[in-house]
Design a protein around this nucleic acid. Structure first.
Length: 429
RNA sequence: GUGAGUGUAGCUCAAUUUGGUUAGAGCACUGGACUGUGGCUCCAGGGGUUGAGGGUUCAAAUCCCUUCACUCACCCCA
């Protein structure tokens, strides 16, 4: 019986991993410009961390977490992280980062786990790149990370994404809105889909997000959260909008946008693509001013986002791919004596920074050449009995088909001197 | 969790409608033509429990049942 991978988990194979590396590299580049520092946190956390931060009644906590009992005597419950923010905040509090410098600009990248039914752009182990700014409550940071994301998308060559903005208010004003909305919905219960009728009492905001035509119609003239914002929230959001506007960032105001996690407040946003199928959110985030305190830290505002690597690479695949790296040199040998000579030479070349490969088993010259060609090598060094005897190897330029002899005594120097040329040749590909 | 669709060679797919000899093709792979020189061309070769199990039949890739996997959608979300 062949062992296959777990449902919803996937391998990122050579040929596609290059795209991932490209995305990660560009992300680091942007993060550096905005002065963010990387943080690496565990993949496993105590279950409590997530149930407390995401909200007991969210879908993630209720049915999507990979949770199991630890092997200790107490049987503590552990969970594979379903998202990144909770862990970052936990680390911020636990390491008392706020004592040295309360304002922290952090980013992370790595796998997250949710036990959902897999589909396009949705896996059970999926990768996120995320950013969190802790300790700043001003609207300028909100705008700043929106711009950061925009810069990033531009840098990796992704256009045609749509930005949607909303404010969810705060603990002061959201309850008032909730009541207002609920009153409105109760008058129209009959027009809502069964699903929405059920979630109406529990989380009325969700109804606004429903894709059912009937629900959309019924809530067409529902009160807008934006009309219910308290003065502080309104000022905050107005400034975010102004800043975004001033920097020429295009966005769509969407008062119906709801976030899935309980901890969000005030500014929330979502970048979507129309080319991803049903799972069209590429990046999303918002403000979470109460979270640090909820998890036992000092009152500290926070704002951040996460983007989905699979969805990002899905979009980039449609543009172009950049194959695996090409070796600098392929050493072709003929006969055991040449092999014995070649093996340590290849090793020394590698130690000196060259990407080199050679065959181990006896293969015909032809088949070695074929493989060199397939690997996209631009230079091949050929050494057989004749060459050994004369102390001269054959160096062949695979692109120009030119070949000439090089001294085997000085072969390392000869090749290393040529390395920049080899790289240039590679770049042309 | 619910629904639909698809499973044939490493990959992309024929053959399933109407059951009928040894399940084919392209690409890829290996080798040869070119005895120590890649790509192009030509030739040859290897590779299949037709996802798995059961049933119907003289005969099953094809029809029926069960099961598994994958995909897409609902839901939910990055």
């Amino acid at each position: 019986m062949k062992i296959s991978k777990v449902k919803g988990f996937s391998d990122i194979l050579p040929g596609e991993v290059e795209l991932w590396q490209f995305v990660e590299e560009k992300a680091r580049e942007v993060f550096a410009r905005y002065n963010f520092a990387e943080i690496r946190i565990p993949i496993l956390e105590k279950t409590e961390l997530f149930s407390r931060s995401l909200g007991e009644t969210t879908d993630i906590v209720e049915k999507e977490m990979y949770t199991f009992a630890d092997q200790d005597a107490k049987g503590s419950l552990l969970t594979l992280r379903p998202e990144g923010t909770a862990g970052v905040v936990r680390a911020y509090i636990e390491a008392e980062l706020y004592k040295v410098e309360p304002v922290r600009r952090l980013f992370y990248l790595g796998p997250m786990f949710r036990r959902e039914r897999p589909q396009k752009g949705r896996l059970r182990q999926f990768y996120q790149i995320g950013v969190e700014v802790l300790g700043r409550g001003d609207p300028f940071v909100d705008a700043e990370i929106l711009l950061l994301l925009n810069d990033f998308f531009w840098l990796i060559g992704l256009d045609s994404l749509t930005l949607e903005l909303n404010s969810l208010g705060c603990v002061q004003c959201r309850p008032r809105y909730r009541e207002g909305l609920l009153a409105y919905l109760r008058e129209r219960t009959g027009k809502l889909c069964p699903n929405c009728q059920r979630r109406m009492e529990r989380n009325p905001l969700r109804v606004l997000d429903c894709k059912e035509q009937g629900c959309f119609e019924a809530t067409r003239h529902a009160p807008s959260i934006l009309d219910y914002l308290c003065e502080e929230c309104r000022n905050h959001f107005t400034t975010v909008e102004r800043l975004v506007h001033e920097t020429r960032l295009e966005y769509r105001l969407n008062p119906r946008m709801v976030r899935g996690l309980d901890y969000y407040c005030r500014t929330t946003f979502e970048w979507t693509s129309s080319r991803l199928g049903a799972q069209n959110t590429v990046a999303a985030g918002g403000r979470y001013d109460g979270l640090v305190e909820d998890l036992g830290g000092p009152p500290t505002p926070g704002v951040g986002f996460a983007m989905g690597m699979e969805r990002l690479t899905l979009l980039l695949e449609m543009k172009e791919t950049q194959g695996p790296a090409r070796p600098d040199l392929y050493l072709v040998w003929v006969g055991p004596a040449a092999r014995s000579w070649a093996f340590p030479v290849v090793h020394r070349l590698r130690r000196r920074g060259m990407r080199v490969e050679m065959e181990g088993e006896e293969k015909s010259l032809k088949s070695q050449m074929r493989r060199a060609d397939k690997l996209g090598v631009s230079f091949v060094l050929i050494v057989g009995d004749d060459e050994l005897k004369r102390g001269r190897g054959i160096l062949r330029n695979m692109d120009t088909k030119e070949q000439f002899e090089v001294s085997l005594q000085r072969v390392e120097e000869e090749l290393l001197a040529r390395k920049p040329v080899m790289h240039n040749e590679n770049c042309k590909v």
